[in-house]
Simulated assay, not measured.
Amino acid sequence: MPGKVVPRTSVPGKKTSAENSSAKATSERSPRGSAGRGSSAAGEAAVEGDGSAEAKVLAFPLPSYKRRRRTVLISVGAIVAVLVLVMGIALYSPALSVRTIEFEGNKLVSEDTLQAALAPVLSRPLPQVTGGDVSSLLKPVVQVKSSRIEARPPSTLVVHVVERVPVALLKNGSAYLLVDQDGVELGTTKDPAKAGLPLIDGGKAAIGKDTFQAMTGVLATLPKSILSQLANASAKSRDTVELKLIDGRSVIWGNASDMELKAQVLEALLNAPLPTVPAGKPAPVPAKVFDVSAPRHPVTR
């Protein structure tokens, strides 16, 4: 007879082996689940913490050298701006326009002539007036060789004039031309004695020649005290300049070498006192010719 399967009855209060196995498995899974849930919570907390750290940006103070550099840059910029403003006012302000022009050093040319020549400068801002502007305006005034300007704020312009110096006369018809070393005509006179200048041979046609330049170069070197004693100057070549004094004495100058030394020697010879003559002896004949062509060994005869 087939055997019967007898069902296992559970005793109250006791667990079967199957139940014990199930409970053990559950207990082993529970810590891992708890740990997983804990890790998840910690991760969320970490994410929230990171988000908070990114949201808060800490401001660190600038290093001291950077603060100083920024201060210097700001100061320099302010100074430059002020300078630009001041220069703009100075260049264009009508308060600094030229109202008065003064001249110094002019003797040959009248101040009225100079004022008329520089009339275009009036009312122009003083800082805008240059030496080149003044030189260009004075160019038609032949007596002016060069000029230099000086600004005296707020409205005065001072012009220092260097005039050409007449050194000789040139015969031109019935009149005499006053010329400087370069042959520039500075004026005319009908009475050569009043001019106190020597006459150059050749007239106006002599201007520009080598002999003319040689003669006027000599005359420009001589002091006024000797120049006023000369009657005329002549030269057959640039190396044979001769001078004639009003009293008839003559000077052999020679070439253009040692010009200043020759002028000093000639002045000393002309101003030398007459030698003392012993009683009973004839007085020496005064020198009529002064040869300074070799100034370290001058000759008189």
Rank of each mutant, 00 (worst) to 15 (best):
A90K: 03
I79G: 08
A55P: 02
G38E: 09
A46F: 09
L96A: 01
D112Q: 02
S40W: 04
R69F: 11
I79L: 13
I101W: 00
F103D: 04
A45T: 06
T71G: 05
A42L: 08
G51K: 15
K107T: 14
P63K: 06
I79E: 07
A78K: 07
D50P: 00
A42P: 00
S97R: 12
N106M: 03
S40G: 11
G43F: 05
V57P: 00
V80Y: 01
A81W: 05
A78W: 03
S97E: 11
A46D: 12
P63W: 05
A59L: 12
A41P: 02
E111R: 15
E104W: 08
V47I: 08
S93I: 14
L83S: 13
S93N: 13
L85M: 09
G105Q: 10
V80C: 09
R37I: 01
V109S: 00
A81T: 15
V80W: 06
A81G: 12
L83Q: 12
N106H: 10
E48F: 05
L73S: 00
G49W: 11
Y65N: 15
A42Y: 03
A90G: 13
E44Y: 01
R67K: 03
G43V: 06
R68C: 12
S75V: 05
L62V: 02
S34G: 11
N106C: 03
V86T: 10
R69K: 09
L62P: 12
A42E: 07
P63A: 13
A46W: 08
N106S: 09
A53D: 10
R70D: 07
E111G: 15
S110K: 15
A53E: 13
R99V: 06
S52E: 14
I79K: 04
R99D: 10
A35K: 04
L62T: 01
P61R: 13
V109M: 00
F103L: 06
E48R: 14
A35L: 02
R68M: 11
L108I: 09
S39D: 07
V47M: 08
N106V: 02
S110V: 08
Y65Q: 13
E111D: 15
S110H: 12
Y65E: 14
V80I: 09
Y65C: 08
S97I: 03
R68D: 11
S39E: 10
A95P: 00
I101Q: 01
F60L: 14
N106P: 02
R67M: 00
S34A: 14
A78S: 12
D112W: 00
A78Q: 06
